[in-house]
Structures are given as C-alpha cells and as structure tokens.
Simulated assay, not measured.
Amino acid sequence: MPACPQCGQENPAGFRLCGMCGAPLEALGSPREVRKTVTIVFADVTGSTALGELLDPEATRRVMGWYFDAMQTAVERHGGIVEKFIGDAVMAVFGIPQVHEDDPVRAVRAAIDMRAALQRLNDELERDEGLELRARIGINTGEVVAGDAADGQRFATGDAVNVAARLEQAAAPGEILLGDATRALAGEAIVAEPVEALALKGKSEPVPAWRLIDVLADVPAFTRHLDTPFVGRSDELVLLERAFTDAAQERAVELVTVVGAPGIGKSRLARELVGNVRDRAHVLIGRCLPYGEGITYWPLAEVVKQLGGETPAARLREILAADEQVDLVVDRVLSA
C-alpha cells in the first residue's frame, strides 16, 4: 500500500490523493528522501558490562533480548518505530512513517514506559542474579531527512538525531533529558525542570536541556498560553461563527468537521471559536484521544463530567431518565 509523502498514511492501491490529508500520491518510482520534523528517543542501559561478566553468553543474550523486546513494545504502543539497536542502545523515532500532532508527547510517554519496563526486568534480575540495569534516555525534536516510507526506507539522519544521542550520553542513570524543542512542544502535558546548558560533543554552543519530572495523565484541552497572533484562517473562523449563530437561532444542532494535515492549525481555529462564543454559550469540550485503550467514549465522558460537576453520574441519569438503558449508558460513558 503506497504511503503518502506528506503525512505517511498508507492508502489503497489506485488512490490518486491521500485519503487522510488530500495530498497527491506520486507514482511509485525510485525511492525519494523527505525532510520532516520528528522526535527521536535514544535509550542506553548502564550495568550491561557487569551483566556480561557475571552471566554466561546465553544468559546474557536472553536478558538483553528481554530488554530489547520490552523497549520495542513500549515504543510501538505509543506509535513510534524502533529504527535500530546499537549495542545496548535503542534508537526510536516518532513521526516516521506517519506524523502525529502529539509525537513529542508520545515519545516522552514511551520513555516513561521504557523506564518502567526496565524496572520490571530488574525485579527478576535482582531476585535471580543480584544485578540491576538502569536506563539513560535522551529525547530531541527537530528536522531530519528520512528515506521514502512507501519503499520501507525509514532511516533518519540530521542534527536532531545527533543531539538526542548526546542528551542520552549526558543523562545520569535513571534520568530522562529533553531537548528544548521537545519540552516546548510537549507543553502542559509534562512537568520538567531546566538543567545547566550542556556542552555536547560536536556542538559549538551549549545546548539547553530539561530533566523530565512527570507526564500528566490528563491535560484539559486549550490550556497552552498563546502569544502569537491568529492569522490566515479568518474565512474559516467566519464559517464556524455562522454555524454557531444558526444553531443558536434555530435551536438545532450544527455539525462542523475541521480537517487538515498535522500542525496546520485545526486546534488553534477551534480555540479561537471557543474564545469568541464563550460569553454567548456554555462551552463543553470533549476530545478524541489519538490512541490508547478504552477511549471510545472519552469525548462523551469529558462533556458529562464538565456538565455534571461533582456528580456527573447523577446528572447523566437525570438527562437520560426516560431511557431504558440509562444504567448501561452511564456505566460505559463514565468508565472511560
């Protein structure tokens, strides 16, 4: 299935335009390189040398195999790919072949899961061998040149890759260091503290870095403060405000779908609409999470919780009092 050169979405044979973003699909020919913004994760373990001294080669291979499998599972759970294993290190990329708007957050969450998976492995190693492995992780976001995803060529090169590797090398065991761009793009979804700018090998100037403290499980929509002016979407904003006016006047539902490539400004457009109508309407916001388990009813759950305050179940039962399946609906929606 050919992949879109713009967003990486795979499309059925015969499609001339991408079914996700509408970009033209080029005829398959010689592989082409693409420039794109991705987030790179480097993870390495400390203590593997001692492991090799104390265990025989077969046992060492088995332990490292468990480690690599656990790291790959954590990366792929969040939508990334493991590009390669380098000795004891893992290099993963988020944004190849398909770009997601939240790739930096996905990468940070994957790093937390990688560290947790290593701890579970350590529980067995400490019990059986008296050993402990600890991970150092570096994460950076930036432009790279990657092979054509449609041809299976996903190798990424660029300064962003080098900086991610240097951040990993500068991290202490058990520590996750973030590049400045990753920290900024992850925004309100993470808690991080600045560390002293790092003098990294190959960089002429010290590189700003951040130590990851925590990843927040649930961040409300539209929490990031924006200082940049809203430009280039005035016509679309007028259409949205017109739909709102029609709904208010006719007391009827108006459904508007905003479609566009990642990063084009869909969330900013919706945010501007919310700001413009908030004094004329009770605004409820429900988000469709991009991935995860048990998230089918997540948007409804968010809306009901905003509407119901401290007693969302009671409020939902009041709204659906005439429905025979009210208990089933309340259980499924609020369990999201």
Score class of each variant (00 low, 15 high):
1 M>C: 12
4 C>F: 06
9 Q>I: 04
11 N>M: 08
17 L>S: 11
24 P>Y: 03
25 L>I: 10
27 A>W: 00
30 S>G: 14
33 E>N: 09
34 V>S: 09
35 R>K: 15
36 K>E: 13
41 V>C: 01
41 V>G: 02
42 F>V: 04
45 V>T: 10
45 V>R: 11
46 T>F: 05
47 G>V: 13
50 A>F: 06
52 G>I: 06
52 G>V: 06
55 L>F: 06
60 T>W: 04
62 R>V: 09
63 V>Q: 01
64 M>F: 04
65 G>T: 09
67 Y>C: 11
68 F>V: 07
68 F>L: 11
76 E>A: 05
80 G>L: 10
81 I>P: 01
83 E>R: 11
85 F>V: 11
88 D>V: 06
90 V>I: 12
92 A>E: 05
93 V>T: 13
94 F>L: 03
97 P>N: 14
100 H>C: 09
101 E>P: 01
106 R>F: 04
106 R>K: 11
108 V>N: 01
109 R>T: 03
110 A>C: 10
116 A>P: 05
117 A>M: 03
117 A>P: 02
121 L>R: 05
123 D>P: 00
123 D>R: 12
128 D>N: 08
128 D>A: 09
129 E>S: 08
130 G>T: 12
132 E>L: 01
137 I>Q: 00
140 N>M: 00
141 T>S: 14
142 G>Q: 03
152 G>T: 10
153 Q>I: 07
158 G>C: 01
159 D>H: 04
164 A>K: 02
167 L>F: 08
169 Q>R: 06
169 Q>N: 13
178 L>F: 03
179 G>C: 07
179 G>K: 05
189 A>C: 08
189 A>I: 01
191 V>E: 15
196 E>I: 05
197 A>L: 00
198 L>Q: 13
199 A>R: 14
203 K>T: 05
203 K>A: 02
205 E>T: 10
206 P>E: 08
208 P>N: 08
210 W>V: 06
212 L>V: 01
212 L>N: 02
213 I>Q: 14
213 I>N: 12
214 D>A: 15
216 L>T: 03
217 A>L: 04
223 T>P: 07
225 H>G: 08
228 T>Y: 12
230 F>D: 11
230 F>H: 14
233 R>M: 13
234 S>T: 11
242 R>Q: 15
247 A>F: 03
258 V>P: 03
261 A>D: 10
269 L>Y: 05
270 A>N: 05
270 A>V: 15
272 E>R: 15
276 N>M: 07
280 R>C: 07
284 L>Q: 12
285 I>Q: 07
285 I>Y: 00
288 C>H: 15
289 L>Y: 09
293 E>W: 01
294 G>L: 09
296 T>S: 12
296 T>W: 09
297 Y>M: 13
298 W>T: 12
305 K>C: 01
310 E>Y: 00
312 P>E: 02
316 L>Y: 04
318 E>Q: 15
320 L>K: 00
320 L>A: 13
321 A>C: 04
321 A>Q: 12
328 L>C: 00
329 V>F: 09
330 V>T: 12
332 R>P: 01
